[in-house]
Write a protein that binds this DNA or RNA. Structure first.
Length: 584
RNA sequence: GCGCCCGUAGCUCAGCCGGAUAGAGCACUUGAUUCCUAAUCAAGAUGUCGCAGGUUCGAGUCCUGCCGGGCGCGCCA
């Protein structure tokens, strides 16, 4: 049960009853009535704004409405107290019995508590990573990869039919550069002296084995050929090799995709022409000359007539070119075709996860999606800000030559996949993130990964000890759901139950807002409540989780601990992080 | 010059379609360990929510303008 949805329904019923009784006029619009956890614990378990929202349309004073509502709420068995507070809030306090019942419910549900069919099977396309296949992934890419992956996990958990997608930019000039770079390494592998890598080619060592592999496969046949002869073949070979590299890097992070969509295939299949024709038919393409960009160096700029998409008709600042001067498609044109491809595959709910350097691109892509779908599809772009890599507070040099910790693989090898994944989700995607290699592996309160994992490990530890008192079959969540929980009457214990019961609400909020970081914050708060209770048991033997002298109380507390373990494990699973059983 | 994002405690950040006296952690001070992991916990102090207007019962949250920082700005992807 989502407690707040439940209370919201109850409040609506009681308002209807007040209307029927004539205390309020009929036909009130209740859409903005909400029941939420109050910021301050003193304000009770839940606060309702109904009286404030309804005052104007009911033509009554807020407090007067609140008094009536509070009176009715107090009449309900699950309500211990309903108080009018402040300008007209109704603060609700629920009985202990109500909370114990919720804990039982959580345990009876077991793993998967909080998962709902919010999405109703609606298809959602989440596109993330989508880096150019020209080299290994760097730390910056890890953030988008993890955010996209966790968001996809979350949406799938909440009943959306999620497709995880990677757009392979294998058609532009950069992959030609890649092919030339590989050809150079190929000549090297064939025994030619290549000297320093020419300016404009990719110098990285990661291409050395690619050159060797090409030489091993094709021998010396490309040495005497002109570029036009070898470029397509070597380009294909190089892209395949780079995508293998990228996939391996993603695999090291535990990030996966369902679909790898190739830009080149879109072009070859004529999908860009189709998209162009569709926009043209809609009268959204014209030939025109753009204003020169201001504030940027203008020397090379000259007026040029181009095929322009009327992005400005859909909220963009200016219209955007679709063809380069040589007639080739711009990146935007192929990206339009790609998003049209998604829409044609039946997606009306599109999410793109991009890096900060693509921020200026959001409006035009949204404009394109609006134009292509006739406003029936929505695009949400999650821009991931920079990751600042630190080591003990000092910035880590990010130059390729320095070679230290610049690649995603290096960071994963250094601190571990789970740490990278969790830390990447401890900030809103649109805020910059400090990633301190030393701090994230510290075992201390200010390392959120550790703090949450430690709570899980402690829960496991207590359950292991509990197994010495309570027979194994009775330790299963479904069995603990039937335990007598009435001894869980300490405020700290009830606070913990309340926190656990917020989980369904957190998941819904995070899923609707596309904000997985909310889960990280909730897990930290849950861990804090749990650690507090744990330490309290040191002072107050009555609160200890496992006590052989008092099996009934032990059973109740093991139920509580089991619930903590379930929620933390579920949250970590959404993040793709393995919960640890013990930490030594 | 224009666009997007950000600006909340000394530091790093939460703040959920506008809600009550704006919250955590770190750092600082003090305290808790024969007791389930003290790798933890408790107590104390900390604010012109960048600035100025506006919208309304109510603004950190919405609107406008300014200031500061980041990212970007046709024929790169």
């Amino acid at each position: 049960m989502n407690v707040f949805n439940y209370l919201s329904d109850v409040i609506r019923m009681e308002i209807e009853a007040l209307c029927d009784a004539g205390a309020l006029p009929a036909g009130l619009d209740l859409s903005s009535v909400s029941v939420e956890p109050p910021r301050e614990a003193e304000h009770g378990d839940a606060a309702c704004n109904a009286a404030l929202v309804l005052a104007k349309q009911a033509r009554r004073k807020p407090r007067e409405i609140a008094e009536h509502l509070a009176e009715r709420m107090e009449g309900r068995v699950e309500i211990r107290a309903a108080e009018v507070a402040g300008p007209g809030f109704v603060n609700l306090r629920l009985t202990d019995e109500f909370w114990w019942a919720r804990l039982s419910e959580l345990l009876a549900t077991g793993p998967g508590y909080g998962a709902t069919n919010l999405g109703g099977g609606q298809p959602v396309n989440v596109e993330y990573v989508s880096t150019n296949p020209t080299g290994p992934l760097h730390v910056g890419h890890a953030r988008g990869a993890v955010v996209g992956d966790a968001l996809a996990n979350l949406l799938a958990h909440m009943g959306f039919a999620v497709t995880r997608e990677y757009y392979v930019n294998d058609a532009g000039a950069q992959v030609d550069t890649l092919a030339r770079s590989v050809h150079t390494r190929y000549r090297e592998a064939c025994g030619e002296a290549i000297g320093t890598i020419p300016e404009g080619l990719y110098p990285g060592d990661y291409l050395v084995p690619v050159g060797k592999a090409l030489a091993a496969r094709d021998g010396r046949r490309w040495l005497e050929e002109p570029e036009s002869a070898w470029l397509p073949e070597i380009r294909r070979f190089a892209i395949d090799a780079m995508m293998d590299l990228v996939r391996a890097d993603l695999d090291a992070l535990g990030v996966r995709h369902d679909v790898f969509r190739s830009e080149r295939e879109l072009v070859d299949e004529g999908r860009v022409d189709d998209a162009y024709a569709a926009l043209e038919a809609a009268g959204l393409i014209y030939s025109g000359v753009l204003e020169p960009p201001k504030g940027k160096r203008d020397e090379d700029w000259e007026p040029r007539e181009q095929s322009l998409f009327r992005a400005s008709a859909f909220g963009d600042d200016t219209d955007r070119p679709l063809r380069k001067s040589d007639g080739a498609w711009t990146y935007f044109a192929t990206d339009i075709a790609y998003h049209r491809d998604k829409i044609e595959r039946g997606f009306t709910d599109l999410i793109d996860v991009w890096g900060a350097d693509h921020g200026g691109y959001v409006k035009r892509m949204k404009a394109a999606v609006a134009a292509l779908s006739g406003d029936s599809a929505s695009l949400d772009v999650k821009i991931c800000q920079m990751v600042k890599l630190l080591d003990g507070g000092e910035p880590v040099a990010m130059s390729k030559r320095a070679g230290r910790f610049v690649t995603l693989r290096d960071v994963v090898d250094e601190v571990g996949r789970d740490v990278v994944r969790f830390i990447m989700l401890t900030r809103r995607n649109d805020a910059p993130l400090d990633f301190d290699l030393r701090r994230v592996t510290e075992q201390s309160r200010d390392n959120p990964v550790f703090y949450v994992q430690y709570a899980h490990a402690r829960a496991c530890s207590a359950l292991r000890r509990g197994a010495e008192i309570v027979p194994e079959p009775e330790l299963a969540p479904a069995a603990l759901a039937r335990a007598d929980l009435t001894s869980l009457d300490d405020p700290a214990e009830l606070d913990l139950i309340r926190r656990l019961c917020q989980w369904p609400r957190v998941l819904v909020g995070a899923a609707l807002a596309h904000e997985p970081h909310r889960i990280a914050f909730h897990l930290q708060e849950l861990a804090a409540d749990f650690h507090l209770l744990w330490t309290r048991g040191k002072d107050d033997p009555r609160l200890r989780f496992v006590d052989g002298e008092r099996p009934a109380e032990t059973r109740a507390r093991l139920a509580l601990i089991s619930a903590v373990k379930i929620v933390i494990a579920e949250g970590l699973a959404l993040f793709g992080v393995e919960p640890v059983q013990e930490m030594r």
